[in-house]
Amino acid sequence: MNTWKRRNVAAWFALGVLALLVTVSTDAQAQAPAVDPAAVQILKRMTDFLDGLQQFSVKTQSIIEELHVSGHRVDYDLSADVTVKRPNKLRAARTGELMNQRFFYDGKTLALYNPSQKVYATKTAPETIEKTIDFARETVGILLPAADLLYRNAFPLLMQDVTLAAVVGKTFVGGVKCDHVLFSRPGVDFQVWVAEGERPWPRKYVVTETAIPSMPSITTFLSDWNLAPAVDEARFSFVPPKDAQAISFLPPVTTGVSNR
Rank of each mutant, 00 (worst) to 15 (best):
E196A: 06
F104S: 10
V188R: 08
T139I: 11
M159P: 01
K85C: 14
K5S: 05
N100Q: 15
K118N: 10
A32S: 13
T128F: 00
A211W: 08
F49V: 08
R203A: 14
P202M: 04
Q41P: 09
G141R: 10
G71P: 00
T109L: 00
D148V: 10
R199C: 00
E198F: 03
V140A: 09
V239T: 13
G256Q: 14
S248H: 14
T139N: 14
F183Q: 00
I218E: 00
T60P: 04
P156K: 06
T26C: 05
L164P: 03
N153W: 14
K131T: 10
R152N: 15
P115C: 10
L98K: 05
P115A: 11
A32T: 07
D189C: 05
P252E: 02
T255N: 11
A121I: 03
N259L: 04
F49H: 11
E66M: 03
R137L: 14
Y113W: 14
P241L: 06
F236M: 08
K59I: 01
Q160W: 09
V176Q: 05
S116P: 03
P87N: 07
S237E: 03
L222C: 02
D81S: 04
S70R: 07
D51A: 02
L157P: 09
P37T: 08
Q54N: 13
R73K: 07
Q245C: 02
M99S: 15
V173E: 15
H72E: 11
F13L: 14
L150T: 03
E209P: 08
G175P: 05
H180P: 01
V35G: 00
R86D: 10
I64N: 07
T83Y: 02
V35I: 10
A32C: 11
P115M: 04
V194C: 01
I42A: 01
T124M: 03
F221G: 05
M215R: 09
T23K: 03
F221V: 13
F190H: 01
R137D: 10
Q54L: 06
A125K: 03
Q54P: 12
R45A: 13
D134F: 02
G174W: 09
A125S: 04
T60F: 00
